[in-house]
């Protein structure tokens, strides 16, 4: 039965093969190569050994960026582990109109981070809605400078990431909740367990694996954060450039006459080293699920 010529598969694979080689494998190799050069955004560059890595050791901004990443991760993790689960539990019951709520809760996910960050800028500015309401209700006597203090900026960005991520992780939890045993819930209810009790002793253990998946996803995305911080700080990285992330540093060195693609590549390698562990775990979790 010879219906397939030897080149047929490769004809079909053609475009994907080109993209695999040119836009996936080659950039991975070239990142390593570039990290040992002083390449500039406008071209040129020569081999400079480990100079870029030495420079990393004395880069204060990099220290700030890494500290920010850790804080980002630590604050995002608990919030994005539980809030989306609560939303999913709310959406689980097939009440009338539930599809509308599901779609609405997902809207922040599909909006561009730039759009959302500009909305946040307007909400959080000195005379914005948040400060206004807080003063009106007597929580604050004067506006909090959400967009100008180093830590306040960071936490504003975190609040944005959490808000934008709610719907995304909610959907992941929603498909996991379908597998949580209904009998177990009913048995617990018959035994007189309160809804809160049932949440902790039936729902949470039931979605344990998904919680692991979510925490890895949150970790990786916290380490990759860019747009939120870039737009909220208007590209400056906050006071003294201290509210930056690693990816923001990479972007900063990618442009203009002061740019340094070699150093940016070295920073990219650092990002790789930080994220490779969680990424491998993610791949494993996804394959297990599939």
């Amino acid at each position: 039965m010879k219906t397939q010529r030897w080149f047929t598969p490769w004809l079909l694979l053609g475009p994907a093969l080109v993209w695999l080689l040119v836009f996936n494998l080659w950039p991975a190799i070239n990142t390593v190569v570039l990290a040992f050069t002083n390449a500039k955004p406008l071209g040129g560059g020569s081999f400079t050994g480990v100079a870029n890595f030495e420079r990393m050791l004395n880069d204060d901004q990099l220290i700030y960026a890494l500290v920010n990443s850790i804080v980002y991760m630590l604050v995002c993790l608990p919030l994005l582990l539980f809030l989306p689960l609560l939303l999913a539990v709310l959406l689980e019951k097939k009440l009338p109109g539930i599809t509308f709520f599901r779609t609405a809760f997902y809207t922040p996910v599909i909006a561009s981070a730039v759009v959302v960050a500009l909305i946040w800028t307007w909400l959080l500015e000195d005379r914005g809605l948040v400060n206004g309401l807080a003063q009106q209700l007597g929580f604050l006597t004067e506006p909090l400078p959400f967009l100008s203090g180093r830590w306040l900026l960071l936490f504003s960005a975190i609040s944005l990431t959490v808000w934008k991520g709610l719907g995304y992780y909610m959907i992941i939890y929603l498909s996991a909740l379908g597998n949580v045993s209904r009998q177990l819930h009913e048995a617990a209810a018959v035994d007189g367990a309160s809804p809160i009790r049932r949440f902790w002793s039936v729902t949470v253990p039931g979605v344990r694996t998904t919680m692991l998946l979510v925490s890895v996803l949150v970790t990786v995305s916290a380490l990759r954060v860019f747009t939120e911080l870039f737009v909220l700080t208007n590209g400056t990285g906050g006071p003294g450039g201290r509210t930056m992330s690693l990816v923001m540093l990479i972007q900063m060195y990618s442009r203009g006459f002061t740019g340094h693609l070699g150093y940016a590549s070295a920073l990219s390698l650092l990002l790789f080293v930080i994220t490779v562990g969680p990424m491998l775990l993610l791949l494993r979790l996804n394959r297990k699920a599939a």
Binding site: W10, N30, S268
Partner: peptide, 29 residues
């Protein structure tokens, strides 16, 4: 066809890289 497993392995391997890691060399390309 021959090479299918290798191709798949390479594709899977690329998933380990967050896009931001290769963004600079992507720009160079």
């Amino acid at each position: 066809f021959r090479g299918r497993t290798l191709f798949l392995a390479l594709v899977l391997g690329t998933l380990v890289l967050p896009g931001e890691v290769t963004i600079i060399s992507q720009y160079v390309t």
